[in-house]
Simulated scan of single mutants.
Amino acid sequence: MSVKPEAASALFAGPFALATLSLPDGPVFPALVTPDGRALDLRVAFDDRELTVRGLLEAWDTAAARLAALAGDGGPGKRPLTEFRVHAPVEPRQVFQSGANYRQHVIDLHVAHRAPGDDRPEEERRAEAAEIMDRRAAEDLPYVFIGLPSAITGPYDDVVLPAWAEQPDWELELAAVIGRAAYRVSVEEALEHVAGYTIANDLTDRATVFRRDMPQIGTDWLRSKNAPGFTPLGPWIVPAGSIADPGDLRLTLKLNGGTMQDESTKDMIFNVARMVSYASQTARLLPGDLVLTGSPAGNGMHWGRLLRDGDVMDASITGLGAQRTRCVAEATR
């Protein structure tokens, strides 16, 4: 769908952001977006018909300065965002996802996912979860796993709830976008490899997170997180230089107008630099890759209310704009 008028007016931090747009029935193209709700086709500006957002990120050290100059140019070429369809801002080759990275969220999940036969009082189980979080922080052990790029969809697209998903849930997350390849980088240098930030809603089917038939195997992230469209992304990538402190951003998710998640990234156990560094110790992070940093408290399991056909999710993060997605049951399509 084309960009919503209210989304076009949702300002992001800084003088510009990157987006992937298209005209109706036209090809997608990389665009520079300005806070006044206008967009510039970067294929024309860079005289490269094959240019993509990922291509810009691969040359981020030089592209960023040129983009800043284009943002300040009042010349022709920029058109209203409302004319375009907004897609996920980048097609990553790899998606690194973080679990159990917001203290209160993990405690809530620990209580909600009570093991069969565990009849201990809730306060005892909350205390146990808090102790686990403190130990992880002290031992410096983030939890990172791999997601599929095929799960990504646009920031205003419908989210199809698969018929087999019994407990689909929302998880609003800050996503770091890699702009310089990173392999075995230190925490101190990790943010030098981040080009910018965007919004991700990392949906999860809670009913399939754990393999009850093989409890010794643990979590099944393929089944629970990677259905097509389970990761609404965007609407844009805001350069890292425009975000003063990624460790102090407000994440808010509303379901049908009611606030479900409203938390600061201050509640992270491991910050963005730590997550990027940790992932890079094993894998080579490539330009355009995403590092999702976990979700705060307030998911559906906490509220006892999971996603249903017709639900509308409005998600925003300080300085990054907003996305709106509507849930559609697979059987109704």
Score class of each variant (00 low, 15 high):
Lys4Arg: 15
Lys4Gly: 10
Ala7Val: 12
Ala8Cys: 10
Ala19Trp: 03
Leu21Glu: 01
Leu23Gln: 10
Pro27Tyr: 09
Phe29Met: 09
Phe29Glu: 09
Ala31Arg: 02
Leu32Trp: 04
Leu32Met: 08
Asp41Ile: 14
Val44Gln: 14
Ala45Asn: 05
Phe46Arg: 05
Asp48His: 08
Arg49Pro: 15
Glu50Asn: 13
Glu50Arg: 12
Thr52Ser: 15
Ala59Thr: 14
Trp60Ile: 06
Asp61Gln: 13
Asp61Ile: 13
Thr62His: 11
Leu70Asp: 00
Lys78Asn: 08
Arg79Ile: 07
Thr82Leu: 09
His87Ser: 03
Gln94Val: 09
Val95Asp: 00
Val95Ser: 02
Val95Gly: 03
Gln97Ser: 15
Asn101Thr: 01
Arg103Ser: 04
Gln104Pro: 04
Gln104Ala: 14
His110Pro: 06
Val111Cys: 06
Arg114Ile: 11
Arg114Pro: 08
Asp118Val: 10
Pro121Lys: 12
Glu123Tyr: 10
Ala129Tyr: 05
Asp134Ser: 12
Arg135Asp: 11
Tyr143Glu: 14
Phe145Arg: 04
Ser150Leu: 14
Ile152Asn: 01
Thr153Gln: 05
Asp157Leu: 11
Val159Met: 03
Val160Glu: 00
Ala165Val: 12
Ala165Gln: 11
Gln167Lys: 15
Gln167Cys: 12
Pro168Trp: 15
Ile178Met: 06
Tyr183Cys: 10
Val187Glu: 15
Glu188Arg: 10
His193Glu: 07
Tyr197Val: 04
Tyr197Ile: 04
Thr198Asn: 00
Thr198Gly: 00
Arg206Val: 00
Arg206Met: 02
Ala207Asp: 11
Arg212Glu: 14
Asp213Gly: 07
Thr219Val: 10
Leu233Met: 13
Ile243Trp: 01
Ala244Leu: 13
Gly247Glu: 04
Thr252Ile: 09
Leu253Glu: 00
Lys254Asn: 06
Lys254Thr: 07
Leu255Thr: 04
Met260Thr: 02
Met260Pro: 01
Glu263Leu: 10
Asp267Gln: 15
Met268Pro: 00
Ile269His: 02
Val272Ile: 11
Arg274Met: 15
Met275Ala: 15
Gln281Cys: 08
Ala283Pro: 01
Pro287Ser: 12
Leu292Pro: 01
Leu292Lys: 10
Ser295Asp: 02
Ser295Cys: 05
His302Trp: 05
Leu307Trp: 01
Leu307Asp: 00
Arg308Trp: 09
Asp309Arg: 10
Asp311Ser: 05
Asp311Asn: 06
Ala315Ser: 15
Thr318Tyr: 13
Leu320Ala: 12
Gln323Glu: 11
Cys327Gln: 03
Cys327Val: 03
Val328Lys: 11
